[in-house]
Amino acid sequence: MIKTVIPRLALIASALLLSACSTQLRTVRLGEPVAPKAISGKFFFISHSTANVGDVILTEGEYLKDASDLQYEMFRVKKSTTTSVEHKMSTFKFSIPAGDYLLRSKTLEGSYYSAPVPFAGLEGTPAGYGGLFVPNETSEATELYWHWTPNKSNVYQAKLTSPIINGQEISGPGATLTYVGVAADQIRFAYKEFSEKGIATPAFTQEVILDYKPGGTYTYKGAQFIVEKADSTHINFTILRPL
Score class of each variant (00 low, 15 high):
186 Q>E: 14
223 A>V: 09
155 V>A: 06
218 Y>H: 12
159 K>Q: 11
19 S>V: 11
44 F>Q: 05
206 Q>H: 09
19 S>F: 08
222 G>I: 10
67 A>T: 11
16 L>Y: 13
86 E>T: 14
187 I>N: 00
11 L>K: 15
126 P>N: 07
56 V>A: 15
222 G>Q: 14
51 A>W: 00
69 D>C: 03
121 G>C: 06
62 E>V: 03
77 V>M: 03
11 L>M: 14
213 K>G: 05
25 L>Q: 05
162 S>A: 11
7 P>D: 11
203 A>K: 06
86 E>S: 12
243 L>S: 04
68 S>K: 06
18 L>F: 12
7 P>V: 12
198 G>P: 06
19 S>Y: 13
51 A>H: 11
37 K>R: 13
75 F>G: 03
99 G>Q: 04
55 D>T: 15
108 L>F: 03
143 E>L: 01
175 A>T: 03
162 S>F: 11
14 S>G: 02
37 K>N: 12
96 I>S: 00
127 A>S: 11
27 T>D: 13
82 T>V: 06
142 T>W: 01
200 A>M: 08
198 G>C: 15
126 P>S: 08
140 E>Y: 01
175 A>P: 10
58 L>N: 02
231 D>G: 05
221 K>D: 12
180 V>M: 05
187 I>Q: 00
136 N>R: 10
207 E>C: 00
153 S>I: 02
131 G>P: 04
112 Y>K: 03
193 E>N: 15
179 Y>C: 06
217 T>H: 09
32 E>Q: 15
191 Y>I: 02
5 V>S: 05
111 S>G: 04
159 K>G: 00
189 F>L: 05
88 K>F: 07
45 F>T: 07
177 L>A: 08
90 S>P: 01
242 P>Y: 08
91 T>P: 02
181 G>K: 01
243 L>P: 03
16 L>T: 15
73 E>Y: 02
2 I>E: 12
212 Y>G: 01
34 V>G: 05
176 T>E: 06
174 G>H: 08
93 K>N: 10
95 S>F: 00
197 K>F: 06
48 H>C: 09
226 I>P: 00
42 K>R: 15
230 A>G: 01
130 G>W: 00
84 S>R: 02
182 V>W: 06
30 L>F: 10
65 K>T: 12
82 T>Y: 07
174 G>N: 09
168 Q>R: 13
6 I>F: 07
241 R>S: 13
228 E>I: 02
62 E>L: 07
37 K>M: 09
39 I>V: 11
137 E>Q: 10
91 T>V: 13
13 A>P: 08
32 E>T: 09
176 T>A: 06
13 A>G: 04
58 L>T: 04
40 S>N: 09
218 Y>N: 13
166 N>R: 07
